Amino acid sequence: MINEVLHTLPQVLIDGLTLGAVYAIVALGYTMVYGILELINFAHGEIFMTGAFVGTAILLTFAGFGWLASMPALVALVLVLVVTSVVTGLLGMGIERVAYRPLRNAPKLITLITAIGVSFLLQDIVRFIAELKNGNYILTGPSLFSGQIGIKASSISSIFNDASVKSSFFIVLIVAVIMMVTLDFFVNKTKWGMAMRAVAQDRETAALMSVNVNKVIALTFFIGSALGGATGVLFAIQYGTIDPYIGFILGLKAFTAAVLGGIGNIRGAMFGGILLGVMEMFAAANLPVVSHGVLGAEYKDVFAFAILIIVLIFKPEGLFGKVSVEKV
């Protein structure tokens, strides 16, 4: 059994890192908003999904005009990422202004229900537009970076099987790392990042120190939503096919990653996303082997949420979170 698990390890690590990078960036949106507003923005998964549709629609437009064939794929990707990030960033700001800001002092349950309502609203709007334009809510974009690269893992050790990766794997991983490092630098080394940390620590005191709280919160939503939208583009390029419901389950798993790393902790969200992606791919590849066929690969979702339950029971603050002390 151990040998069978080791055989698939190279491919599991490759697939897990790809999926984990997606989880990590989406988890950043959850953890940034929670760190400042203590709000679980369940509409964030749908912003990710909207980004996937916007990016795919732009690529299809480029292909329709013949531009995609005449420009380097990397240039097309950068253009799509920038445009999609701006669109979804503004969408996130609009949601905050219309749906969340009027309820800022309301009970948390009301804002939570509002977030769920916004989530379903975005799902149905995107589905309606996709069916109107495409005749079907499932969208398949043009292939970018679709070449297969073989990795001779068997040359390292005969225990491992060879693995293969799409060229897009490297693009997804590199862009994800760039976005995560840039965000970490922005939050920890810039004036606006300092303002965000100040508002997260004590909103009232930050306002007394001349910090514009509304602008900081709007900027937080813009950055989190822009990252989520860009990640949707990377997801569409890596997996090819998207639909209006990809944001629901992926958003829940990204939230799980944020809780795993420590909700409100940016570096924890990054680590939690990568860890969850690798563990989920490991479960998908090896559950049938370990359980002797009782559990199939489809139980990987159960595995992911079982991890969430275990973390909440034994370490509710997460791996990198700090225990909050209630002041009286």
Rank of each mutant, 00 (worst) to 15 (best):
V5P: 04
L6N: 12
T8Q: 15
V12S: 10
L13E: 10
D15Y: 06
T18K: 12
L19K: 12
G20Y: 02
V26P: 09
M32I: 13
V33Q: 09
L39M: 12
L39N: 09
N41M: 05
F42T: 14
H44V: 02
M49K: 12
G51W: 00
F53N: 05
F62K: 07
A63P: 11
F65M: 04
F65V: 09
A73H: 04
V75N: 06
A76H: 01
V80Y: 00
V80T: 13
L81V: 07
V83I: 14
S85K: 06
V86K: 11
T88F: 02
L103I: 01
L103W: 04
A106T: 11
I110P: 00
T111W: 03
L112Y: 08
I113E: 04
L121Y: 06
L122S: 04
Q123L: 14
L139F: 06
S146E: 12
G150L: 06
I151G: 07
S155H: 02
I156C: 07
S157Q: 13
S157D: 15
S158H: 14
I159W: 14
F160R: 13
V165M: 15
V165C: 02
S167C: 03
F170H: 01
F170E: 00
I171Y: 07
V172M: 03
L173V: 14
I174R: 01
M179P: 11
M180V: 15
M180N: 10
V181A: 12
V181P: 13
L183K: 15
D184Q: 14
R197K: 01
R197F: 00
R197M: 00
A198Q: 01
E204N: 15
T205R: 10
L208A: 12
M209P: 08
I217N: 03
T220M: 11
F221R: 03
I223Y: 07
G224W: 02
G224Y: 01
L227E: 10
G228F: 01
A230V: 01
T231P: 02
F235V: 10
Q238F: 01
I246H: 08
G251K: 08
L252S: 01
K253G: 00
A254V: 09
A258I: 08
G261P: 12
G262H: 10
N265A: 05
I266Q: 06
R267M: 06
G268I: 11
M270P: 01
G273W: 08
I274R: 04
L276R: 08
V278D: 06
E280Y: 03
E280Q: 15
L287W: 11
P288D: 05
V290H: 08
V294C: 10
V294F: 13
K300I: 00
D301P: 09
F303Y: 13
F303Q: 12
I310M: 10
I313K: 13
F314V: 10
L319A: 14
S324R: 15
